[in-house]
Design a protein around this nucleic acid. Structure first.
Lengths: 334, 334
DNA sequence: CTGAAAGCGCTAACAG
DNA sequence: CTGTTAGCGCTTTCAG
C-alpha cells in the first residue's frame, strides 16, 4: 500500500480511502490511485486491516458440519455459503466426524482466526466452554443438533415429530412388528428420533419391549450388518425405521442382499440421493438441510448486524415423501 | 496477550514464547503463563501474529470447487481437508457454479485474506491474471480442469482415455448407434471426454456424422429433456454415453420415464450415489475425487515447504465399473 | 479534500 | 532464561 501511495504520489491514507470507497476524494485522485494499484497488482491485506478496524470484524465465518463429503452437510454448507457470499463473507468449513477431540481442535483453530460467527453441528454434550467466547462477541449458531449449557440460536429439524409421523405411517399401513435402527445414542438427533418413534408406538399401544431397538449404527456398513442379523433372526420385523441417511442405505443393501426389499417395509429419516429411482422407491422423512444452513447464516448475520433478540430455537419442518418402500403391507409369514 | 503477561507477572514476549512452545522458558514460568492464559480464556490472534511473522504464512488455504453441494466436489473437499487438518491449516471453501464472475469474486476475496495456497477448479479459459500472484509466493494448484496461460501443478482425471475406454466397452458390446450427451463445451473436461469418445469411434471406423452429439447440458433437467427428445426421435440410439454425474442422472430419469432402462445401454462418466442399487446397476467410469483433492493438497504443501519442482500434470486414474446398464446388448428394433 | 502520527496484537531482533 | 524496542500493513484520529 505504501508502494501504491508512492507511485501515485499521494499519502497512504488516500490510498486507503480509495480502496475502501470512502468519500472525500477527488475523481482525479481516485483515478491516479486506481491506476497505480492496478499496475502493482495491489490487493489489500484484509487481515492487516481488521487488526486496526474499529468493528474488529474479519468478515469470516466458521462452519463445522458432520463431513463435507456427506450430501446432508454439503447442503447445509451451500445454504450458509449462499447467504454469506452475498455479503462478502468467506466461509471456513470443517468436518467433525462426530469426534469430540476433532471438534475441540477445529473450534480452537477457528477462534484463533477470529471468525465473526461460528455455525456448528456439535457432538459435545456441553458447550459451556464457548460461553466466554460468546460474551466476547463471537456469534454462535447451532445447527442440526441442540447444544447444552449455552444460550444461542438453534436451527433444527422437527426430529421427534417427524419420526413419529413416519412411525404412524407404518402403523397406519398395518404394521405392528416394527424395528428401529439408530445412530449413536449420544447424539441429540438420535435421541429425539428414537423418542418420536417410541412415543408413537405408545400412542397406539404397541408394547415397546417387543420392538428391536438397535443403536450405535454410525456407518453404512454397521447398519448393513445389523440389518442382516435382524432379518435373519426369528420373528422378523415387517417394517424398519432407519434414523439417518447412511443407516437407510445400509438397510437397503441388506434388504436387497436377502431379496426382501419388496417384502419388508422401510422408512428412512433424511432423504437419500436417487431414492426415487430405486425399486421400490424409498419412503423417507426428508429434511431440508439447505434451508437449515440458510437460516442459520441469516440468524448469525442478524446478530452481527446488531440485532439482539432472545436466543431462539428455529424448527425447519421436514416432510414425509411416500415412494413405495414405506407402503409395503405387512406379511403374515414372518 | 498483554493482560496475560500482566496477570502472570512476566513480559509479553515470554507469553508469546509459551503460547508458541518456543524453548528457553522455565517450567515454572510456563506454568504461570498457562494458568493466566487459561483464566482469561486467552486465544492468540493468528492474524495479528501472521502480520509480523517472518514466513508470512496464514496457515490458511483456499479451495474453489464446482459446488459444495455436489458429491464430487464434496469428495475433493474432504481429500483436501484431511491433508490440511493434519497440518493445522484451515480451509476456505467456495462454490463456483461454473460462473466466471463468481470465480473472479471468490479468488479476489481469498487473495485479500492472504491464503497460502489456492486449489482451484476453474471455468475461466485463461488464468494468466494469476501469474503475478503466483510470483508473489501464493501456491496455485489446479484440480479437475486444466488451466491455460500459467505454469502450475495440475491434478486431473484421465478424461479422454477413460471416455475412450467407456466407449470401447459399448462398442465391444455390439453397439454402433451411440449417442453422446455432454456438458458445456467451454469446459476442458467436457472437451476431453468428447474427444475420447469421438476418437474411439474413429478407431473402429464408425462415421461420426451419424452419431448425435448433444452438448451444453449443465443440469439434471437439461439432460432429462435432451434424452427424452433423443429417444423419442427416429433412429433411436442403442447406447448412451453421459459425460458427467448430473447428466447421467438426467438420462436415467428419462430412460425410466420411457421404460427403456433395460433396453438402451448407458455408461456414465463419474460415479453416482447408489448407482449399484438401481436396476439395472449403472455402469460408470468412476473418478477418484477424494484422491484428487488429497493429491492437490499434498502438492500445495510440498511447495509451501520449499520444494520447487517443475510444475507437472498429475493424472489420477479412473476406472470402469460394470454394473449392468453398460452391458445391455443393442436391440435390432430401433 | 489530504496527510502525518499513533497503534491494533503479535513476533523479530537484540540486549540484558 | 527474560524483557525491551521496533514494526508487520492497515485504519483511526486529528491536524492541516
Amino acid at each position: 500500500m505504501r508502494d501504491v501511495a508512492a507511485l501515485a504520489g499521494v499519502g497512504i491514507k488516500t490510498v486507503s480511502r480509495v480502496i475502501n470507497n470512502e468519500p472525500n476524494v477527488t475523481a482525479a485522485t481516485i483515478a491516479k490511485v486506481r491506476a497505480a494499484a492496478e499496475r502493482l497488482d495491489f490487493h489489500p491485506d484484509l487481515n492487516a486491516g481488521n487488526l486496526r478496524r474499529s468493528d474488529r470484524k474479519t468478515r469470516t465465518l466458521g462452519l463445522v458440519v458432520g463431513s463435507v463429503a456427506n450430501p446432508f452437510s454439503g447442503a447445509i454448507h451451500r445454504g450458509v455459503e449462499d447467504t454469506a457470499v452475498a455479503r462478502g463473507i468467506a466461509v471456513f468449513a470443517s468436518s467433525l466426524d462426530d469426534d469430540v477431540t476433532r471438534e475441540e481442535r477445529i473450534v480452537t483453530e477457528m477462534l484463533r482466526r477470529r471468525v465473526d460467527a461460528l455455525i456448528l453441528t456439535t457432538v459435545r454434550k456441553n458447550q459451556s466452554s464457548l460461553v466466554p467466547e460468546q460474551a466476547r462477541g463471537t456469534v454462535l449458531v447451532f445447527v442440526d443438533r441442540e447444544p447444552a449449557g449455552i444460550e444461542a440460536d438453534i436451527v433444527v429439524t422437527n426430529n421427534a415429530e417427524a419420526a413419529g409421523e413416519a412411525t404412524a405411517h407404518l402403523i397406519a399401513g398395518g404394521h405392528r412388528k416394527l424395528a428401529y435402527l439408530g445412530d449413536r445414542r449420544e447424539l441429540w438427533t438420535a435421541q429425539e428420533r428414537r423418542r418420536g418413534f417410541l412415543e408413537q408406538l405408545g400412542t397406539v399401544g404397541i408394547p415397546t419391549r417387543d420392538i428391536p431397538i438397535i443403536e450405535e449404527l454410525h456407518s453404512e456398513d454397521a447398519a448393513y450388518d445389523a440389518t442382516l442379523a435382524l432379518l435373519r433372526g426369528r420373528d422378523r420385523p415387517t417394517a424398519i425405521f432407519a434414523s439417518q441417511n447412511l443407516v437407510t442405505i445400509g438397510v437397503i443393501r441388506a434388504l436387497r442382499e436377502l431379496e426382501l426389499q419388496r417384502t419388508v417395509a422401510l422408512v428412512g429419516f433424511d432423504d437419500i440421493p436417487l431414492g426415487d429411482m430405486l425399486e421400490p422407491g424409498v419412503t423417507v422423512v426428508a429434511q431440508n438441510p439447505y434451508e437449515m444452513g440458510r437460516r442459520a447464516a441469516e440468524l448469525a448475520f442478524a446478530r452481527l448486524d446488531g440485532a439482539a433478540p432472545e436466543a431462539a430455537r428455529h424448527v425447519i419442518p421436514s416432510r414425509l415423501i411416500m415412494r413405495g418402500s414405506g407402503e409395503i403391507p405387512p406379511t403374515a409369514a414372518s
